[in-house]
Simulated scan of single mutants.
Amino acid sequence: MGKEPAQLVERGGLRGALVRVAARGLHRLLRLRWLVTRPKTQGVSALPVTPEGRVVLVRHSYAPGWYMPGGGRKPAEDPREAALRELREEIGMTAHGTVRDGGEYFHRPHSKRDTVAFFVVEDVVYSARLSMEIDAIGAFAPDALPAPISPAARRRIREWHEGLPPAPDW
């Protein structure tokens, strides 16, 4: 499987560069705010796996590297439903199979105090659509991941692919 080319949709050109500059500037301002307020947030992250066994990752317009889709959830929102909503929003998921609970993790990104509920979503079918937040969407063989990739994504993919127990840290 590792020799097969990745399935990739990405924004390029001048428009893509302008979106990235604006998004990264806004993200820097938010990070300053979080440094002062140290918010406590609830988030979700999902590892979408296609019927062919590829993992779907996203590249944000505001940060370099590849990540699993995910985001915040509303206080009363069910974590599983929030993860599925994020997959619909970020990768254009149109169908899925089994959703497995992958645990809950404490994470401290950019001075926030974030609790992340993690899920593995199998048999994901999607129609890639880019947004202001998502600059690229790719489906990759688990043994041929793109670089750079977030440490959390690499860890969770390795655990899923090799059947390892989850590490305690995000």
Rank of each mutant, 00 (worst) to 15 (best):
L8H: 06
L8E: 05
E10K: 05
L14N: 09
R15F: 14
A22Y: 04
H27R: 15
R28K: 15
L29W: 14
R31H: 14
W34C: 10
L35W: 15
P39T: 03
P39G: 12
K40R: 12
T41Y: 04
G43S: 07
V44K: 02
S45Y: 07
L47F: 08
L47Q: 01
P48V: 05
P48Y: 13
R54W: 01
V55Y: 00
V55Q: 03
V55F: 09
V56E: 05
L57R: 05
L57N: 01
L57T: 02
H60A: 08
S61H: 08
S61M: 10
S61V: 07
P64Q: 10
G65N: 12
W66T: 00
Y67G: 01
Y67S: 07
P69H: 12
G70R: 04
G70T: 07
R73V: 00
P75I: 05
P75C: 11
D78Y: 12
R80F: 02
A82S: 11
R85A: 02
R85W: 02
R88F: 09
R88C: 05
E89R: 09
E90H: 03
V99N: 11
V99A: 14
R100L: 14
G102W: 11
G102H: 07
E104D: 08
F106C: 13
F106K: 11
R108Q: 13
R108T: 15
H110F: 14
S111F: 02
S111G: 13
S111E: 10
K112N: 09
K112M: 12
R113I: 06
R113T: 03
T115I: 02
E122M: 15
E122Q: 14
D123S: 09
V124E: 07
V124D: 00
Y126C: 03
S127Q: 14
A128Y: 09
S131T: 07
E133Y: 11
D135V: 09
A136H: 00
A136S: 01
G138S: 03
F140L: 06
A141T: 05
D143T: 04
D143E: 12
A144P: 06
L145T: 05
L145I: 04
P146M: 11
A147N: 10
P148H: 15
S150I: 04
P151E: 14
P151C: 03
P151R: 15
R155E: 00
R155G: 05
R156G: 01
E159H: 11
W160M: 02
E162P: 02
E162R: 11
P166Y: 06
P166I: 08
A167K: 10
A167D: 06
P168W: 09
D169W: 09
D169M: 06
W170V: 02
W170F: 14
